[in-house]
Nucleic acid binder design. Structure first.
Lengths: 344, 344
DNA sequence: GTTTAAATCGAAAACGTTTAAAGAAAATAT
DNA sequence: ATATTTTCTTTAAACGTTTTCGATTTAAAC
């Protein structure tokens, strides 16, 4: 108990060598003899030495710490399925490379709240990963434009590395599959228009249908917030009450799709016999609950991993790293919520 | 770009006062004149000064950083509904109090992997919060027994602060409600026995039924891992094939319950008309998908908040803080997955 | 035996901050 | 006028590292 922290100086004394030698021995520098290294390490172990991150950071200007900025409407993205999976993967990769993960985003209501950039400088993050809906936030902008290495997820900035999931192909695959199952009256309860993700999905939706020669009907297009079951419920109800209702409804995400499913069931309709539904994201439950959801499974693992990997490249080689936009494809999960209504 | 970091020294020069004065001015010490403080702050702002956490930590032995150790079987608890909600709440509270959050648990496969305790000492965490299933891990034990302020979640240790959800009352409430709905043949697909959570839930299950005068039938008790839909599916199938099947099945958690629901539906049975189902935790989807799950909603918000608050108390007053076990009650969500089968 | 090179180690400064103690200046009391 | 207190400021050491550069020793080369 109350054990004092042991420093290089303690080892130095116990070993009878200088502090410099201890430091170099522990860091395996080449100008220290094998014998000394061994002796130093042994004593360090015996004394219970642990390096001090703060001192190292102060001296080297390297914190081995990465800041993460994950914000969604509900504040921290931690409870957000998609983000939390991406973050989990990011964290694993970063830790493999010797980095720790610290959150940047905090309570904005706090009086002495720092800006994101201030926070990042304060903590001396070697790099920063950003994934959030509110990319229009000036604080986010300030952070991105700073000289701290940064990668963004699902949003592209000029001259910054971005990892984006392939919404174009995702929606195209999904719509095409639905089309192939015989559907022509396809509704889309999409997310709100102010995000890049929504934009590209919508574009892809229109383009794909156009390519397939299916006219898009305005009354089938309705905006509803992401992950909002209630709003999706209402939207679905309205869609079902149309004079000529759709045969298939696509949703912004699996969560919303569940809301839609509730509405459908409440009307006494069966899925997929009476009406088909499709989600997006491929969250765990969507692939577990029957009817298995027809959805696009995002490769959160790859997104997180690549983001970490690219960020670390950038940290280690700020000038030499290729600035690029990396697109990560999802995969179509056919599930069983979209019926085949082709005539036999 | 490539902006050099500005330090107290820069302000000191620009202001024509000593570094000490600058430091004290910025920290609002009482022995600095009002005029000087204002001038210093103004110049600090103009120069774009940000304090340096590493230097502060080095000098003061205070990192304003809290380490979190969240581990479940699937490695990091980040994607775990219950944990991620607790963590989210913990983070909010901690940040309000000026602390940042950094993960302790890393990739165990890494060669130069530090122990949890080493990691905590290395980073100089002011305190640590632990929530994980594997409390038998010797590394966890080492961390808990160290002299770093620590609170644990859902597991009690001697002489350490613990925040635990009230599993006794939760199960009692749930079982009682099910009983009141007329059920006497109640099965329980509970978690694996090696955790404290399972133990207390099981005990409470037995006790409550005994108090109600309902005999517990061995063939209705089956162990299945938490959050495992497949295993719950199998267990449910077996339960349904019993000569005298239960009228209601309780599950270890909502996730497992969904697996059970799949099994039930596959047999062509309806919920709750043909058989009743109850979950535990109250995850978001369980309260959104119909039939609304009968479950115990854990107060993750309070658990996280109290954990943070107690940990910070402990950090600020290591000797004077009451070591206690705080029990947080959940609430019964009646939902609609348990039918009333009382005779009319 | 001297010169050169290689191997090994140490002294000291520096990173940015805090803080105890002491000093200087101004205000107050005698 | 001097003594005393109060108010404000500075000096300097320290926190635990890393790293440059020079010092010393040892081995190799001539």
């Amino acid at each position: 108990m109350a054990r004092r922290i042991v420093s290089l100086k303690d080892i130095s004394k116990a070993c009878g060598v200088s502090i410099a030698t201890v430091s170099k021995a522990l860091n395996d520098h080449s100008d220290i003899s094998k014998e000394t290294k061994e002796r130093v390490r042994e004593i360090a172990d015996k004394l219970g030495y642990h390096p001090n991150a703060a001192a190292q950071a102060l001296k080297t200007n390297r914190s081995n710490n990465i800041g993460v900025l994950f914000v969604d409407e509900a504040n921290s993205g931690l409870t957000h399925d998609y983000f939390s999976h991406v973050l989990d993967s990011f964290k694993k990769k970063a830790e493999q490379e010797g980095f720790d993960i610290t959150f940047i985003n905090g309570d904005k209501s706090r009086s002495n709240k720092m800006s994101y950039l201030s926070h990042a400088i304060y903590r001396g993050f070697d790099g920063v990963v950003i994934a959030c809906v509110e990319f229009s936030d000036p604080e986010v902008d300030e952070l991105i434009k700073s000289n701290i290495p940064v990668v963004t997820i699902d949003h592209t900035f000029y001259n910054r590395i971005a990892i984006v999931s392939d919404n174009i192909k995702g929606i195209r695959d999904l719509v095409t599959y639905i089309y192939e199952q015989g559907h022509r009256k396809i509704a889309y309860v999409h997310g709100l228009e102010n995000t890049a993700v929504t934009q590209s999905r919508l574009t892809s939706f229109y383009n794909t249908l156009q390519d397939l020669g299916v006219p898009v009907r305005d009354e089938y297009m309705v905006a509803s917030p992401y992950r909002n079951t209630e709003k999706a419920f209402e939207a679905t109800t309205r869609l079902l009450e149309l004079p000529d209702p759709p045969t298939c409804i696509m949703y912004s995400d699996d969560f919303a799709a569940f809301g839609g499913i509730n509405a459908i069931r409440q009307k006494g309709l069966r899925i997929p016999e009476d009406i088909s539904v499709a989600g997006y994201d491929g969250i765990e439950l969507a692939r577990r609950i029957s009817p298995l959801m027809t959805t696009i499974v995002q490769d959160t693992d790859k997104i997180g991993r690549v983001a970490a990997s690219k960020l670390i490249d950038l940290i280690n080689n700020p000038k030499g790293t290729l600035i690029e936009q990396i697109v990560v494809e999802g995969t179509l999960e056919k599930g069983e919520s979209v019926a085949n209504i082709n005539p036999v």
